[in-house]
Design a protein around this nucleic acid. Structure first.
Lengths: 337, 337
DNA sequence: ACTTGGCACTCGGGAACACAGAGTGCCAGG
DNA sequence: CCTGGCACTCTGTGTTCCCGAGTGCCAAGT
């Protein structure tokens, strides 16, 4: 059905359309690519491609435009991820290396990705669920109020103010802190619930009411409330693309954390790039846009995901290269800090 | 020059134009407002207003549109801030009350404001410079690495990982923490530099190198690095307004923290609403947009600012009412937590 | 069996044009 | 100083027309 030349034609159509943003005709193809055949032959191939649903003509007597299915084939079989240039790599490295805390790493990453790809970049904060507890801190603020600070091995810090049922002395706080740290240090987040459940027995009865409150807050913070934080940047790039229609929907989707999460998707395979093209993605307002996402992590576990969102007619090889590279560097930075 | 009726005409023009988004003519004005005079008279007044530069006609034989100067006059002398309805007030209150930490207060505030005004909302995090230290925490992470956590009375938490020049024992860390807290607790941020400068004398010589490193990081975090954090939400509302042109510039401005800061402006007078109309604001790409901002704070000091950005032809009385109300409520929440 | 040049056909988009309607400025009369 | 009337000036819209790009199909060539 689809011989090599037809595939070559499809590739040429995608490449030309991406760079010119205009429907591409048979003559232009014959001129700009050395396909070694005449426009008439190309027309025949195009007809076949159209039958297969890979391309589409906006109206009779216009050139052809790739369909979502066409892009899909292009991404899967006709293109190679394009690595970044040396200069770009170095730029990434130095730019990310300057960050001093997790917030800044994430902030810089998302801006970097937006600038590099000229699309909207989306970065999810390293997930709590796969990280481990590095430290628990309890800080007395008032007689019956303490601040709880939880630090994970990914540099993430969660803080909560806790109101206690009764007054608690400073030395009891210290004791509680020591017990908690001994029990939880290095503990995987997944193990926290059972670890916490076993704790009260090791405490003296007088400490129990305060401890119970604090423990329940810990659980809530770490486990129940793993509403993952997500940030994005580069919305201005959307306006640059001739989006005119649907832009509002896209912006709305970007501000809905839940939608964003689902867009980045989930894969356990760390190094894999996920590409969602146009109608493949789960949100109606996002026809016309594609998402290129990758997982990142320190070591072998995927901690979270990042990616970009742009018009369906984006330059996939370059975009995929940039996303993959940034994901790797962020992983390195995170592992090293 | 501008008698009462002319002002009434200007007010009517602004109101009509804001609600219809179409140049308003003399006849329409006579019909929709009871000005008690004929269209011809209104035309004369309009001519005068145009001479004064308050309104402008896109082309001969079109209606009139207010100029920036016209809006300015309207805001200053012809309109009253419109208070929110009781239902809205209650909605704000319950929505904000559910927040559990500073991040969430800010997040909710910015969304609330965006939804309430249907414009882009901008909220600056409570400034470090005017708050006081509530607690300093030093957490050993490794032999020569500690995490420094600074908590202010506004609930803001700053954390930094610090690499020390030499190994430090746990009990030395405790001692250092105690000294720091005694010295800094309740200390205004402005006083931190001198307080810190006096500290080394109170420490034993062996602690000095580590302490010096930590102290310099404290200074850096609190004083030098008061790059204020700013968030925004509701960008989708921009697309709804018929912005077509300039949208790209606006989005770019929104992503530039520095520009955003300057847009919110600075006033020491806490309760005052600041309105910047069109060309009055300091950024070229933001002709066509107005900013309504207010300071908020707990107690009498202004901690930071918040506001909205929308098309010049926004409904100023309503917008100003919403901004003022939200600023007040946030102040209350912050004071109470 | 595939490729190629030729040819008639289709259709979108820009240019030229006319026209109705909204709005104005001005003037003379109340 | 206000008002009704009137002539004038535009913009926006709809219509028509035509060019050109691009196609599909066919018959001839390799």
């Amino acid at each position: 059905m689809l011989d090599d030349r037809k595939l070559a034609v499809l590739r040429a159509i995608v490449e030309d359309y991406v760079s010119t943003n205009e429907p591409v005709g048979s003559k232009a193809l014959a001129d700009r690519h050395n396909l070694g055949v005449s426009p008439a032959t190309i027309r025949n191939d195009m007809a076949a491609l159209e039958d297969g649903g890979y391309i589409h003509q906006p109206h009779t007597s216009a050139g052809r435009v790739p369909t979502d299915k066409g892009y899909r084939l292009f991404v899967d079989r006709l293109s190679q991820v394009k690595p970044l240039s040396g200069a770009e790599r170095r730029a990434i490295e130095t730019f990310l290396a300057g960050a001093i805390d997790l917030d800044e790493i994430v902030m810089r990453t998302v801006r970097l990705l937006a600038q590099l790809t000229r699309h909207v970049a989306v970065v999810q904060y390293p997930s709590l669920t796969r990280s481990t507890v590095r430290h628990v801190e309890i800080v007395p603020l008032a007689d019956r109020r303490v601040m709880l600070v939880l630090i994970t091995n990914t540099g993430r810090v969660e803080q909560r103010v806790v109101d206690l049922p009764e007054v608690i002395a400073d030395d009891r706080v210290s004791h509680l802190r020591a017990v908690l740290n001994t029990a939880l240090d290095g503990c995987g987040l997944a193990q926290v619930p059972e670890t916490v459940a076993a704790l009260p027995e090791r405490l003296s009865p007088e400490d129990r009411p305060a401890a119970a409150t604090i423990l329940s807050v810990i659980l809530e913070t770490l486990v129940e409330r793993h509403e993952e934080k997500i940030v994005f940047a580069g919305a201005a790039n959307l306006a640059a693309a001739d989006f005119t229609i649907g832009l509002r929907d896209v912006l709305e989707a970007l501000e809905e954390q839940v939608v964003l999460m689902r867009l980045l998707g989930e894969t356990d395979d760390l190094s894999e790039l996920t590409v969602r093209i146009g109608s493949e993605n789960p949100y109606t307002g996002l026809r016309g846009t594609s998402i290129v996402a990758a997982g990142y992590g320190s070591g072998d576990k995927e901690l979270a995901r990042l990616g970009v969102l742009g018009p369906t007619r984006m330059d996939y090889p370059v975009t995929m290269g940039a996303v993959r590279a940034v994901a790797r560097y962020v992983g390195q930075i995170l592992a090293g800090s």
